[in-house]
C-alpha cells in the first residue's frame, strides 16, 4: 500500500515539470491571448474591460488586416505545396542506399537544425538589394544590368515568392524526414508487387506509394501548415511585411500592431483570429488521416 502511494506520489512529482511547463509556457499565454482579444488592453494600460468582439470587428475593417489574411493563406499554401512536392522527391531519392547517403541526409537536415533567424538573415543577404549573390551572378553572366537587377524583396509578387521559398527551404527538412519515415515503413514487397504487376515508377508512386503514405503526409502537412500559419520569423526578417504590406501575414501584423504599435488587444485579436482556422484544418487533416489508415 505504502509503496503504491509512494509510487503515485513519485509519478506526480515526475509529471509535474511537464505539466508546469505546458501550463506556464503554452497554456497561460494562450489564455491571455484570448482574454486580451476580447478586452481593451493596451500596452501601457492598467485594468481590463471586456469589450466583446469589438477588436475583431475593428480589424476586419482594416485593409491591411484583410490583405494579411489573404497573404497568410497564400504564404502557407504556397510554402506547403513546394515543401510536400520537394519532400516527396527528396525522400524518394534518400530512401535507397547509396554512397554518402548519411552525409546528404545530414546536409538536408541542416536548415532545420540551424536557428531560423540565422538562416533567414543569410537569405536576407542573398536577396539583398545591393549585395545579393544571386544578382551578382546574374550581372556577371550579363543576364541583367547592374542597376537593373531584380529586387527580390522589392516587388510584391517577387517578395512573396521569396518569403515562400525561404520558408519552404526551412520546412523542407522536417517534411523530408517525416516522409522518409513513412516511405521506409512501407513493406518492400508492395512496390515490388506493383513492379511485377506492370506498374512503372510514376504509377507505383502515385497510385501505390503516395496513397499509402497519406496518413503520414497528412501529419507532415498539418504540422507544416500550423508552423507556417503561425510563423513570422521569415517575413519579419526578410521584408517586415513589405513592400507596401504585400507580404504582411497575420503573425507579423499582430506583432507590429500589438507590441510595436502598443494595441495589445488588437494584436491578440489578429493572432487568435488564426485559431479557429487552424482548429478546422487540424480536424480535417486528422479525420482524413484516420480514414486513410491502412492495415
Amino acid at each position: 500500500m505504502g509503496l503504491r502511494r509512494d509510487a503515485g506520489r513519485l509519478g506526480a512529482a515526475m509529471f509535474a515539470p511537464a505539466l508546469l511547463y505546458i501550463v506556464a509556457l503554452v497554456g497561460t499565454p494562450l489564455v491571455l491571448a484570448f482574454l486580451y482579444s476580447v478586452g481593451n488592453v493596451k500596452v501601457g494600460s492598467v485594468g481590463y474591460e471586456f469589450v466583446g468582439l469589438d477588436n475583431f470587428i475593428s480589424v476586419l475593417q482594416s485593409p491591411t488586416f484583410r490583405g494579411a489574411l489573404l497573404h497568410s493563406f497564400l504564404f502557407t499554401v504556397g510554402a506547403q505545396l513546394i515543401v510536400i512536392i520537394s519532400a516527396n522527391i527528396l525522400a524518394l531519392a534518400l530512401v535507397d542506399r547509396f554512397r554518402g547517403r548519411g552525409l546528404v541526409r545530414f546536409f538536408i537536415l541542416l536548415p532545420w537544425v540551424a536557428p531560423i533567424s540565422l538562416g533567414a538573415i543569410g537569405w536576407k543577404w542573398i536577396l539583398d538589394s545591393i549585395y545579393s549573390v544571386i544578382n551578382w551572378v546574374l550581372v556577371q553572366l550579363h543576364l541583367v544590368e547592374p542597376f537593373d537587377a531584380p529586387m527580390w524583396l522589392g516587388e510584391g509578387a517577387l517578395a512573396m515568392l521569396s518569403v515562400i521559398m525561404v520558408h519552404a527551404w526551412r520546412m523542407l527538412p522536417f517534411s523530408t524526414v517525416i516522409l522518409l519515415a513513412g516511405l521506409t515503413a512501407i513493406p518492400k514487397d508492395i512496390p515490388e508487387a506493383a513492379a511485377v504487376d506492370g506498374a512503372g515508377f510514376w504509377r507505383t508512386h502515385f497510385q501505390i506509394t503516395i496513397p499509402m503514405m497519406t496518413p503520414i503526409i497528412n501529419v507532415a502537412v498539418l504540422f507544416g501548415v500550423v508552423f507556417t500559419f503561425t510563423d513570422m520569423t521569415v517575413v519579419y526578417i526578410l521584408t517586415r511585411g513589405g513592400p507596401y504590406n504585400s507580404t504582411q501575414v497575420l503573425p507579423s501584423l499582430a506583432f507590429f500592431t500589438g507590441i510595436l504599435g502598443g494595441d495589445l488587444a488588437e494584436g491578440a485579436a489578429i493572432s487568435v483570429f488564426l485559431v479557429p482556422i487552424l482548429v478546422v484544418i487540424a480536424w480535417l487533416m486528422l479525420r482524413l488521416a484516420r480514414r486513410a489508415e491502412v492495415v
Binding site: 493596451k42 491591411t64 516587388e155 513589405g242 513592400p243 507596401y244 507590429f256 510595436l260 504599435g261
Partner: peptide, 24 residues
C-alpha cells in the same frame, strides 16, 4: 500620441507612398 505611434509602427505612411509609387 499613442495613436500616432501605432500609425508609425504599422507603417501606414510608407505603405501609402509605396502603393502609389509602384502604381498599385
Amino acid at each position: 500620441s499613442a495613436a500616432i505611434d501605432e500609425v508609425f509602427n504599422t507603417f501606414v505612411v510608407p505603405t501609402m507612398f509605396a502603393t502609389v509609387a509602384r502604381g498599385q
